[in-house]
Design a protein around this nucleic acid. Structure first.
Lengths: 129, 129
DNA sequence: GTAGGAGCTGACACAGGTGTGAGGTTCAAG
DNA sequence: CTTGAACCTCACACCTGTGTCAGCTCCTAC
């Protein structure tokens, strides 16, 4: 090893978080995932990075874009402490609207899932008969 | 008028379903929304089309692509009657996997919504204090 | 017949996170 | 020092439903 336990590099973070190195680098350019650098220029992450990456993925999955996530993250209390920023009224308005969208989307997803279940059940029924 | 009550044209369907004409034409190319044609070549839809378009939108929102929706639709019982086809085992497998994805996505959405709520509540708290 | 709103096709562009490859550098084990 | 894995940057491509524009045709009320 000889690492000194300072931090993991991108490969390990990718493996641990289940996200590609490509995406991790992209997150950095978007200001979502700051990284220390070794003297040689390689990225170094602390353990907190894993949780952050997972959180980022969750928010992406919910349809938020990089810009919103970047504004949002500092307003969250991290595992250890308190938020490093509070949302501006402007941001709150945007997030509220996202919230609405997400609620509608959940409803659509449930509806769609039921539709899938119906088709699957019907096929199973045919099969059994 | 002089329509004879035969069917609505694309503009009305767009207005009634809340979907752009562009999208309706696209749905037709994807085999999702068959349309009659007037002798002059204009599309004509029955009232059933509104529901179908809404259904298509719901499925798109759930992340299904045109191909899957096209396979899925005939396996659904329409408002009036019974399905015109049953799902093949292959399709059932695909849909089951979609179902899994949707369930995971719902979980992500709920998580994300909670995150948004936290940020919003925190900003409101700051505001009140 | 005519005017003008509505419809038609075809084509180009976009969003934006991710895959992929080239070509070069860093790191650590031996 | 050498070597090979891991990492770096840069750049191009993709997917796919939708917006938009251009240029033309249809339909219907007058």
């Amino acid at each position: 090893m000889g690492n000194g336990g300072r931090g993991m590099r991108i490969g390990e973070l990718a493996r641990r978080s289940g996200v590609s190195e490509r995406s991790l680098r992209y997150y950095e350019t978007q200001g979502l995932l700051p990284a220390e650098r070794t003297p040689g220029g390689q990225r170094e992450y602390g353990d907190w990075a894993v949780d952050r990456v997972v959180r980022i993925q969750t928010l992406y999955a919910a349809g938020l874009n990089s810009r919103k996530i970047a504004q949002l993250l500092p307003c969250l209390k991290d595992l250890d402490g308190r938020p490093s920023a509070s949302a501006t009224p402007q941001l709150v308005a945007e997030l509220s609207s996202e919230r609405e969208r997400i609620n509608g989307l959940i409803a659509d997803l449930v509806l769609s899932r039921d539709v899938l279940d119906e088709v699957i059940a019907l096929a199973a029924g045919m099969d059994a008969k």
